[in-house]
Amino acid sequence: MTDKALRYLPLTEATYYILLALVEPLHGYGVMQKVEQISQGAVRLGPGTLYGAFTTLEKQGLIVMVSEQERRKSYALTPFGRRVLLAQIDRLQVMARRGSAVAASLKAAGTE
């Protein structure tokens, strides 16, 4: 396996949600609101964390600035960013499937 996308895994929870939010172009504050919403309130992004993530992800070529209006820069995923995100989702699905199988047997054992 020499897929370059795998080098960026695993993403931190914050980065994962930022990439999820950027499937459509959004500016910083839009990303903050969307991430809080789609994570069901579990992940709140501070502006320091988000600005740092934008800088790093742009440098790594996972996102690109698509417009700037009234001092607000909007970003979106690049094709490479989409590949990284998909690779992460595949991993998470394996984790979740294994996890729910174990959770089910633990719960069954716990009720005996």
Binding site: E13, A14, R44, L45, G46, P47, G48
Partner: peptide, 13 residues
């Protein structure tokens, strides 16, 4: 929220 850095990774950065 009272933090500008909301995870350890970005604070380390």
């Amino acid at each position: 929220e009272n933090e500008i850095f909301t995870d350890p990774a970005s604070k380390a950065e």
